[in-house]
Amino acid sequence: MEKTILVCILAYLLGSISGARVTALLYHTVNPTSSGSQNPGATNMYRIGGFKAGLLTFVLDLLKGLIAIWTAFKFELSADQTGLVAVACCSGHIWPIFHKFKGGKAVACALGCIFPVASGVASSLLVIWVITMFLFHYASLASICAVLACPVLLFAAGSDYSITYSVLSLLIVWRHRNNIKRLLNGQEDKF
């Protein structure tokens, strides 16, 4: 139990490091929380700083999830405990202690949390995201579709992680609630 709490705290702190803010410093762009969609994520950094800035933000946020789950593996945590680590890491991204608890939506971070436990599912989620994006040109819709598919694919694969990652999926969909409203009202910006 103590190991789980320790790794969850470390994962939360790691999740609190903002890939978008780091990228903004490296590329000398405006703060992503004060420009564009004001979301510190890869899509907004793409809009602000271009392809390389968006890609770097995506990779940095993905790495947070990877490192958190690899740490859980190193400490030999159970599937349920590892799922809690994933939730902690993504919670850090969403409510970062280093940035007044104002963070992003944790899509890339969550993907990083999925790769170590089910790389096939994670790859399928990327394909779902790309196809949805290609068909509809909404990054938020592509993210929501991939996130909703995650627990279904994990369950179909017989994964021990399907329950805790379902909680993570619901959290990320909830973070997209304003995007969902704009999509329903035809007001969401296309990518």
Score class of each variant (00 low, 15 high):
G54K: 06
R175H: 08
H28T: 01
T23I: 01
L153V: 00
K74A: 11
P96D: 03
M133C: 06
L170T: 03
Y12C: 03
V59F: 14
E188F: 04
T43W: 00
L141F: 13
V107E: 08
I48T: 03
F73W: 12
A86S: 07
N31H: 07
P151K: 15
S166R: 12
I172R: 00
W174Y: 07
R177I: 05
S78Y: 14
H93Q: 05
E76W: 14
K52P: 04
G15Y: 15
S124G: 12
A106F: 12
G54L: 08
L168Q: 05
Y46R: 04
D189M: 13
K100G: 06
Y27Q: 08
L154T: 02
T164Y: 15
A86D: 02
I131K: 15
T4R: 06
I9F: 11
K190P: 06
A42Q: 09
N39M: 12
S119R: 10
L25E: 15
Q38C: 09
T164F: 12
F58S: 08
W129E: 08
L171G: 03
G50S: 11
V117T: 00
C8Y: 11
L13D: 06
I48F: 00
C8M: 11
Y46M: 09
A108C: 03
W129Y: 15
V85M: 05
A156M: 15
A106S: 09
L56M: 11
W95T: 01
V30M: 10
V22A: 08
Q187F: 01
P40D: 01
N31C: 02
G36C: 10
F51C: 13
C89D: 10
R175S: 02
Y27T: 04
L77C: 07
S123T: 10
G49D: 05
S124L: 15
A11L: 02
L60T: 07
F98R: 15
I69T: 03
A142H: 12
V173I: 05
S91R: 06
S124Q: 15
L26C: 04
L153K: 04
S166P: 00
V107N: 11
C89Q: 04
L170P: 01
D80G: 01
A88R: 05
L10V: 04
I144P: 01
A68D: 15
K52R: 07
A139R: 02
P32A: 12
L171M: 14
I128M: 07
A72E: 09
S143W: 04
A86T: 00
V152R: 11
V117N: 05
F75I: 08
D61G: 05
A156P: 08
H176F: 04
